[in-house]
Design a binder for these strands. Structure first.
Lengths: 182, 182
DNA sequence: CCAAGGCGTTTAGAATAATAGACAACCTTC
DNA sequence: GAAGGTTGTCTATTATTCTAAACGCCTTGG
């Protein structure tokens, strides 16, 4: 029994945010069973392991195939975001270290007068965001608008766009873009 | 217990040409265990299934991943080989219908004077074979040689090559080439 | 024909796993 | 701090699986 079925199951269960009892209920077994399995104090029969995995749900093949390679970080404390901005525009990336991301999520902070300029590289994909504080003038193609707290935007990145802080206080935005640009 | 673990195990065991007792001995379990599992009269614990598979050997992941989809034909009677040759060069393929082959194995028969010509398409990969009967002149790159029964050859297919039956009797060859050319 | 040895199967008993329920520890909420 | 909820763990009993040793069947070789 070289394989750590118990730890493996626990990891899977955690990954789905389930408690032992909750998983047990879904799987039609008792919570004690899950507990004993996770502690490797018993080696479940294939049928009961299948029952348990059906509660996830996950196939036996997936269960044994999953390499469980150090699951990527899920939660990031404020100071764990990667800071890549300059003086006027501060960009703080979520999951920066993650290699295969489908998108980039950032916390952006524009100082007063900060301006990305109109000659930005216009990449393919889409991007959007929500303004948290301050006011920013967003120009997308021919349209221009000043957005304040709670306002949001979404456009295809191919269209030339420009961010400019027209207020006298810092402007904070949470944005997402795909494909990842950083 | 929707999955047919028993039949699956039996198929794997057969695939390796093992008897229940033999597998049991290698795995360190009793033959009865194997029998009961194969009949699905018990659902083995993961640990014991692992022990059994260690006797093959095969990993749990492989065991559950294996789709066992109607295992492809293994034995081909003489007249079950696909015949694709012309009048002078008869080619009889092994496992012709099999879609995902790693190589092509053929029984080739060259009539006297048969000649593949020197201008063959030289494909990537490697090929080799053994002469069964007759004599054939094989030219590979600058080298040329007459091979008789029992002789063999092996070369990288990228080099231009030519087969020519220089004897007065038919020449038979069993060859293999990778990647499959037919 | 019988004996020897292979095969898969079966059965009683020993070993192991699953259940139901209790337990302590930890939160909230009052 | 007490009540009620969660969490994971543990124990006695029940249920299942594994072993050891037999069984019947077939093939092989004297």
């Amino acid at each position: 029994m070289s394989i750590d079925v118990g730890g493996h199951l626990k990891a899977v269960r955690m990954m789905y945010g389930l408690s032992q009892r909750e998983l047990a209920k879904r799987a039609g077994v008792t919570n004690g069973t899950i507990s004993l399995i996770e502690q490797n104090r018993v080696s479940p029969s294939v049928s009961s392991l299948k029952k348990v995995l059906d509660g996830v749900p996950m196939s036996l093949a997936d269960f044994f195939t999953l390499d469980l390679q150090e699951s990527p970080q899920v939660f990031y404390a404020r100071d764990e975001l990667a800071d890549i901005g300059d003086r006027d525009v501060q960009l703080r990336l979520v999951a920066a270290k993650r290699t295969h991301r489908a998108m980039t999520i950032m916390h952006e902070r524009y100082r007063p007068k900060a301006d990305t300029g109109a000659d930005m590289l216009s990449h393919k994909g889409e991007e959007g965001g929500i303004i948290l504080t301050g006011h920013i003038e967003l120009t997308v193609g021919g349209q221009s608008r000043v957005l304040g707290p709670g306002d949001a935007y979404y456009f295809t990145s191919a269209v030339p766009h420009r961010f400019r802080n027209v207020g006298d206080e810092a402007c904070e935005i949470v944005s997402a873009s795909t494909p990842p640009t950083f």
